[in-house]
Structure formats: structure tokens, C-alpha cells
Amino acid sequence: MNNVFYYETQIGKITIIENGKAITHIYFGKVVFEDAHISIETPLLKKANIEINEYLIGKRKIFDLPLEPEGTEFQQMVWRKLQQIPYGETCSYKDIAKGIGNINASRAVGMANNKNPIPIIIPCHRVIGANGKLVGYAGGLDLKEKLLQIEGIVL
């Protein structure tokens, strides 16, 4: 059974989901589910909200939450690599591809980045184009730019 709760943050409403032991999803906006989700604020969901808000005001650089994103083995590999990008730094899709041992997988890395179910905490916003430009983000490029600015990155 999944638990879901909705929070208002300085970047707007977010939906956080956990499976009883780990965070599984974060959505921008309010997402309503018709199956297998109970709307209840659990201690883990509350902790995730606190940590996200601390991050958004510049007080938190590292998240301390159990995560269980669901995805393919390749996606999992990419998401683990994303979590290794230090706060305040960016890298390209090619850098991630090289880091997972497949320099030719930039496009596949981009697709895995796009499917990241736990944005902000798994920092896909830190991945930029090889030319140094902002490229796609589930919350929109304005939000991606804002998250990078919180970390002191101005492109």
C-alpha cells in the first residue's frame, strides 16, 4: 500500500509518495490517484517535506531519506549516478554516460533522466546539455533554473 500526501512549497504544490519504508515518487503539482494510495501524512512523508523545504531555502545540501525508485536496471544505474553529482555542480548527459561505463549512451541517459520518479532528491536538475545550456525538466526549465540558483549555479 502506498501513502501519499500533498504539500505546499515555495515552488508550488508537490505530491510525495512512500511505500511504507521509502520514498518512491515526487510529482510537481497535485496528482490524484484512484488506486492503492492512501492520503495520510506519515512520519516519512513529513520528513521528506521538511528536507525538501530545507533544501529550497538553502539549508540542506544532502538528503537523508530512504529511496526506492522503480525502474529498469539501466535507469537505476543512471539514478544512482545522478545522486553522486555534488550539490552546486552540474554535468552533462555524456558525463553521466561515461560515468556508468557507456560513453555512447547519452541519449539513453537523457531518457532515464526524464523518467526520474524522485526529482529534487535524485538531482536530475543538475544535468545540463553538453553546450552548458539548460535542457528539459519535468517541472519546466524555469524551475530547473531556480533549483540550480538555490545551489549557487548560474548559467
Rank of each mutant, 00 (worst) to 15 (best):
F28T: 09
F28W: 15
G29P: 08
E34Y: 03
D35N: 13
A36I: 01
H37D: 05
S39N: 15
I40Q: 12
E41T: 09
E41A: 15
T42I: 04
T42F: 09
L45P: 06
L45E: 06
N49M: 04
I50S: 10
E54G: 11
Y55E: 06
G58Q: 10
R60S: 10
K61Q: 13
K61I: 04
F63A: 00
F63G: 01
P66W: 06
P69H: 06
P69V: 03
P69A: 07
E70V: 12
G71S: 08
G71T: 06
T72R: 06
E73C: 03
Q75A: 13
M77D: 07
K81L: 02
L82Q: 03
Q83N: 09
Q83Y: 02
Q83M: 12
Q84C: 04
Q84D: 01
I85S: 00
I85T: 05
I85C: 03
P86M: 01
Y87D: 05
Y87W: 12
Y87E: 01
G88K: 01
G88A: 08
G88F: 05
G88M: 04
E89R: 15
E89D: 07
T90R: 12
C91F: 03
C91K: 10
S92P: 06
S92I: 05
S92Y: 02
Y93M: 12
D95Y: 08
I96A: 03
A97E: 09
A97C: 12
A97V: 11
A97F: 12
K98E: 15
K98W: 14
K98H: 10
K98G: 02
G99E: 08
G99N: 11
G101T: 13
G101P: 14
G101H: 15
I103H: 11
I103F: 11
N104V: 13
A105R: 14
S106Y: 09
S106L: 11
A108P: 02
A108C: 04
A108H: 11
V109P: 07
G110P: 04
M111V: 12
M111D: 13
N113W: 05
N114G: 06
N114W: 14
K115Q: 10
N116G: 05
P117V: 02
I118L: 07
I118F: 07
I118H: 10
P119Y: 07
I121N: 08
I122V: 15
I122C: 08
P123V: 01
P123C: 05
C124D: 13
H125R: 03
R126H: 09
V127W: 05
